[in-house]
Design a protein around this nucleic acid. Structure first.
Lengths: 226, 226
DNA sequence: TGAGCATGTGACAGCATTGTCACCGACGCC
DNA sequence: GGCGTCGGTGACAATGCTGTCACATGCTCA
C-alpha cells in the first residue's frame, strides 16, 4: 500500500487532501504540520510520495524541499508542492523539478488526484517505473520476469530483451535486422538463425499466448497483445 | 536528438514555443496546424513528444488526443496539451492522463520548458526511464549494463539486481537478510556465502570503484557513490 | 502443383553463470 | 595479545544459457 506524507499547517487543506485520496483508493496517510517534523518523518518512514505546502511556519517550504533532495534517504521520493499563485510559484518554476510536480492553490481535487496517481505510478511499481505493460503481458525489468495472467514466467536475459523490444511497440513489425542489432548488436546484414530459435523459445514460454508473436514473412516479427 | 511535434494553428504560439525550446537545447521541431495533419505526421515520424493545442480548427483537439492514444504507433508518445482556463480544462482534468501533462494558457515559457524536459527525461532515455544513476554510476536496466566513467561494463543478471538494489538507496545499509530476500528470494534466516561471493565479483568488476560497496560488519553492505 | 526460399524445431556442444566449500585474513571483544 | 567470529577469496562442479546446425515444414510465385 503506497504511503503519502502530507505536510501542511492548515488542517482544512490536510482534510481536503485526505478526503479526496481516500475516496479513490487505499493509501496510507501520514501528516506533518511543520518542516522539521516533516523531514524527520520523511527520513524515518520513507513515504512513496510527499505533498508539501510551501507556506509553512518556521522552516521555509523550499528549504524543506531542498533538504529532502539532498538526503540520500529521501532524494528519490517524488514531491508535489502546493503554492499560491505569485512569487513562490515563480521560484518553483526556476527549479529543476526532476520527477516532481507542483500545483497552484486553489487546486481542484481531481487535478490533485491525477498528479498523485501519476507520480505514484511512475515511481512506486517496483521502485523506478520498471514495469512495462501491454494487454495481459506485464514485464518486470528489475526481476527479469514476465507476468501473464497471474503466473510469473522466468525469462533469460536475451529472451527478456527481445520480448521487451517487441512489447514496447505493439502492432509494429520489427525487422530481423533491427532485432539483431537491438538485442545482439549484430550488424543487420549478418545471416543467422539465432533470432528464430529465440523466438521459438519465447513462444514456448508464452504458452497459449505464443501466437502474440506474429511472423511477418520476409520482414521480421510483430507483437500484439491478444 | 529528441524530436518534438507542435500542433497549433496560431503561428505566434508556435513561434513562442520554438524560440523557448531552441534557446535551451537542440531539439528537432516538427509543426502541424490542424488535427489531421498532426495525426499523419505523428504516425509517420513518431516524435518523442507532442505539444498539442486543444483549440484546433476542424478536428477537435481532444479527439486528436484520443486518436493518438488508440494507435499503437503513437500510444506511448507523451503529450503536453495546451488549453485555456475554463470548460476544456475541466474536461482534461477528467482524463486519465497517464504519462501526459497539460498547461493552461497563458503559460510561462519556463514552465513549458520544465514540463518538456520532464517528459523527455521520463520517456526518451532508452524508451522507458530505464536508467538509474548515482554519482558516476549509471545502470541501464534494458541492456543490463553498467556505465562507469565512459566504459560499459557487462553485468550478469544476478550482479545487476544486487547492484541495482544498493544503488537505488545510496548511503543506506542493506542487511544481509534483506539482500538475500530481494535478490534471491531466500528467507532472511538462511545461512549462505553466496552473497559474499557476488559482492566480491561486483567489486572486481567495479575496479577502482570497488570500495563504493562498503562492508558493514555484522549487518550487511552499503553503497555510496564516490 | 512444384521449386525455391523462409521459418519452425530438436539436438548439441561450448560457455558463462552460479552456489558451495575450504581456507585465510581481519576485526572486535575479553 | 588471544580467541572466536565474520567476511574475503580462489577453486570447482553443476546447471542453465546460447548459438549453430541439420532437417522438417510451410509459404509464395510461377
Amino acid at each position: 500500500m503506497p504511503s503519502i506524507l502530507i505536510v501542511d499547517d492548515e488542517e482544512d487543506i490536510r482534510e481536503l487532501i485526505a478526503m479526496n485520496l481516500l475516496r479513490e483508493e487505499d493509501y496510507k496517510l501520514l501528516e506533518a504540520v511543520n518542516g522539521l517534523e516533516a523531514l524527520k518523518m520523511a527520513k524515518e518512514l520513507r513515504p512513496d510520495l510527499i505533498i508539501l505546502d510551501l507556506m509553512l511556519p518556521g522552516m521555509d517550504g523550499l528549504n524543506v524541499y531542498r533538504n529532502l533532495r539532498e538526503d540520500p534517504r529521501t532524494k528519490a521520493v517524488p514531491v508535489i508542492m502546493l503554492t499560491a499563485r505569485g512569487r513562490l510559484e515563480e521560484k518553483i518554476v526556476g527549479l529543476e523539478l526532476g520527477a516532481d510536480d507542483y500545483l497552484s492553490k486553489p487546486f481542484s481535487p481531481r487535478e490533485l488526484m491525477l498528479r498523485v496517481r501519476n507520480l505514484l505510478r511512475r515511481t512506486n511499481p517496483n521502485q523506478g517505473g520498471s514495469i512495462v505493460e501491454s494487454g495481459p503481458f506485464s514485464l518486470d525489468k528489475n526481476a527479469l520476469k514476465l507476468h501473464l495472467e497471474g503466473t510469473a514466467i522466468d525469462l533469460t536475459a536475451t529472451e527478456f530483451k527481445l520480448l521487451l523490444i517487441m512489447i514496447e511497440s505493439p502492432g509494429i513489425t520489427q525487422e530481423r535486422g533491427e532485432l539483431l542489432k537491438k538485442v545482439w548488436g549484430y550488424s543487420d546484414l549478418i545471416q543467422t538463425r539465432t533470432l528464430d530459435t529465440h523466438i521459438k523459445r519465447l513462444r514456448e514460454k508464452l504458452g497459449e499466448h505464443g501466437n502474440s508473436i506474429e511472423t511477418v514473412r520476409g520482414v521480421g516479427y510483430r507483437f500484439h497483445d491478444a
